Amino acid sequence: MNAANTLLDARRTNTPIADLPPELLPASLDEAYFVQDTMAIAYEAIGGWKVGAPTPDATPIFAPMPFAWIAPSSSTLAGQTHRYRGLEAEIAFLLGEDLPPRATPYTLEEVVAAIKSCHPAIEVLESGLVDPATATRMSMLADLQMHGGFVYGPAFPDWQSIDFTTENVSLFVDGILRVERTGSNTSGNLMRLLPWLANEGAARTGGLKAGQWITTGSWTGNVQALAGSTVDVRFEHIGRVGLRFA
């Protein structure tokens, strides 16, 4: 609880800390997840989950996304909570059906059947840590895995026809191209993340629910912006999404 309160205070007061002190540092991923979940309670309703993997062979990791931080494309993000202003271009899915916990694992086909729509998205990264890249990894993971906002673009109707390994993405900040990549989702195959979350994550999520978002990891790495910046993400097929920082 003290770790969660320390990170919550750092975020809410815009007074980031260099790292969690040793006595509050999570000793395992399960402990980091406990801190995440305690922080999420403070932000009330959960609107979805971020899930990703740093390499194609790595076990996925995930974190809750507060409903209050979810917004449509072209939104202006205001408030002192936007200090770090990290950006990741992502592909996200909106669930149309519940996927409750069950003894038999869900197949990919079953999870896909529960998806209502697929969207281009921007995950906004924020942190109660001064520089998450130099802090202890467990501190970064505990701090909602740097989650600070989620902005979604229009649905792309024919998404199941897309070969994500060849999908191109460009990220612009203030009209300047900052990143352009192809097939660059860090998990290798982003579709593997969906049944993993429905199955392995169920004990923690309580089951995935209709109306929740699942965003599936970065295509662009972490790109930082400034106050007043406009951001434009363009996927070759999935579409465009943008935001502005006040």
Results as ranks from 00 to 15, higher is better:
224 Q>C: 15
125 L>F: 03
187 S>P: 12
206 G>N: 06
65 M>L: 11
14 N>K: 04
81 T>Y: 07
98 D>T: 04
226 L>W: 11
216 T>L: 14
39 M>E: 07
81 T>E: 13
230 T>Q: 14
149 G>N: 11
23 E>P: 06
163 D>T: 04
206 G>D: 04
246 A>S: 13
45 A>C: 01
14 N>G: 06
213 W>Q: 12
54 P>H: 01
58 A>N: 06
231 V>I: 13
105 P>G: 03
15 T>H: 07
68 A>L: 09
73 S>R: 00
22 P>E: 10
227 A>S: 15
215 T>K: 04
215 T>I: 15
91 I>V: 09
164 F>N: 05
66 P>N: 02
93 F>E: 03
52 G>A: 14
221 G>N: 02
173 V>K: 01
185 N>F: 14
8 L>V: 13
126 E>Y: 01
229 S>I: 15
149 G>S: 11
46 I>H: 00
203 A>M: 11
12 R>K: 14
53 A>I: 06
45 A>T: 05
162 I>A: 02
156 F>D: 07
42 A>F: 11
130 V>P: 00
102 R>W: 04
181 R>T: 15
189 N>G: 08
54 P>Q: 01
112 V>D: 04
21 P>G: 11
55 T>D: 08
23 E>G: 05
214 I>L: 14
204 R>N: 12
67 F>W: 05
81 T>S: 09
173 V>G: 02
43 Y>T: 00
82 H>K: 02
42 A>Y: 12
122 I>Q: 03
226 L>G: 09
134 T>P: 06
15 T>W: 02
89 A>N: 03
135 A>S: 14
121 A>W: 05
208 L>R: 05
113 A>Q: 08
58 A>M: 04
187 S>N: 13
2 N>P: 08
19 D>E: 05
49 W>D: 02
103 A>L: 07
26 P>D: 13
43 Y>R: 09
52 G>V: 08
237 H>S: 07
164 F>M: 09
180 E>F: 04
46 I>A: 01
240 R>L: 04
77 L>K: 01
106 Y>M: 03
69 W>F: 12
39 M>G: 07
225 A>L: 05
168 N>A: 15
89 A>G: 07
137 R>H: 14
205 T>D: 10
110 E>S: 01
137 R>C: 13
145 Q>L: 15
24 L>E: 08
45 A>R: 08
208 L>Y: 06
66 P>T: 01
